[in-house]
Computed example of a mutant assay.
Amino acid sequence: MHGPAMSGWLLMALCAATGAYCLLRARARTGEERRAARAEALMGFGMAAMAVPAAVVAPPSWGWLLYAVLFGVAALRALWSSRRSGHHLHHLVGSSAMVYMSLVMAGSGAAAHGSHASHAMAAAGGVPLLTGLLLAYYAAYVLRSGARLIPVTAPTAGGGAVTGGPSAEGWGARPELALACRLTMGIAMFAMLLTL
């Protein structure tokens, strides 16, 4: 993506760590939760690969097209899985956004190698309306996910408050960690779209 090298490296590390946690979470779950964790791991690793600073590794335009195909398949799978779970609609939006960013990056690489300057400028930023809609979606998603992470206190009979304590489940199956991963990927997607 376009942007400073340091922020690209930090974004790459954050997305890779999130993808690794999602893989571990997939091992701790079964059924639908496992499929969702795998889809999130793919998204995390794909975002990490796309966030590598271009000054270090500039993928060829066919590399961006490969990302577009990979996430196009993931989007179709999410569309198919959305019949069972509404959370897969978010995966569909995320995969589609990755396809969009990949195609924009492939277009900006091709435009930089010989097309007209006006086409290069249009390809470098994508379609402003679509980019704006995706930015609005991810801003709302991040705010909603962040609000869900705020602990809720429940009053006790003695007048004190009890907050949700540690779960008896293993750390790979804790719902607040899964939500934190989704929040992290939402923030990363917002940042990547902002630099488009």
Rank of each mutant, 00 (worst) to 15 (best):
M101A: 06
M189G: 03
A5C: 09
A48W: 03
L143E: 01
R35K: 11
M105T: 09
T153H: 12
L129M: 12
C22L: 09
M1S: 08
A39P: 05
A140K: 07
T163Q: 08
P53G: 00
S96K: 08
R35D: 05
V93K: 07
L89D: 00
R144C: 01
P60V: 06
S102Q: 06
A191T: 13
A161K: 13
T184V: 12
T163H: 06
A37L: 01
L177S: 04
I187G: 04
G186L: 06
L76H: 06
S167F: 05
M12V: 03
L14N: 01
S102D: 04
R35G: 00
G44Y: 10
A188C: 15
A68Y: 04
R77T: 13
L133G: 02
G159V: 12
G63I: 06
M1R: 06
V162E: 13
A16K: 03
A68M: 04
R35W: 08
G172N: 06
L135T: 05
A136D: 01
G132M: 07
F71G: 02
G94D: 00
V57G: 00
G125W: 14
L177V: 14
G165A: 15
A26D: 01
L76C: 12
M192S: 01
H2C: 00
Y138K: 03
I187W: 12
Y141N: 01
R174E: 11
L193E: 05
A17K: 03
L177H: 13
S108R: 15
R35C: 00
F71T: 04
A136E: 01
A117T: 15
R29Q: 13
A20C: 11
R83Y: 04
V142Q: 05
T184P: 07
L130K: 07
G186M: 08
L23R: 12
L65W: 10
G44Q: 09
L179D: 07
A110W: 15
R144K: 11
A68C: 03
A139C: 14
A5H: 08
A78Y: 08
G132R: 09
Y67T: 04
S167Q: 12
A106K: 14
A122I: 06
M1W: 06
A157F: 12
S95P: 07
G94K: 03
A168E: 11
M192L: 12
H88R: 10
A154W: 14
P155V: 05
G107P: 11
W9E: 03
L196C: 11
V57E: 00
G94Q: 10
P128N: 02
M121N: 09
P155Q: 03
A139Y: 10
Y21T: 05
G72F: 08
A122N: 07
R29H: 13
L23C: 14
H2I: 14
G126W: 06
L42I: 09
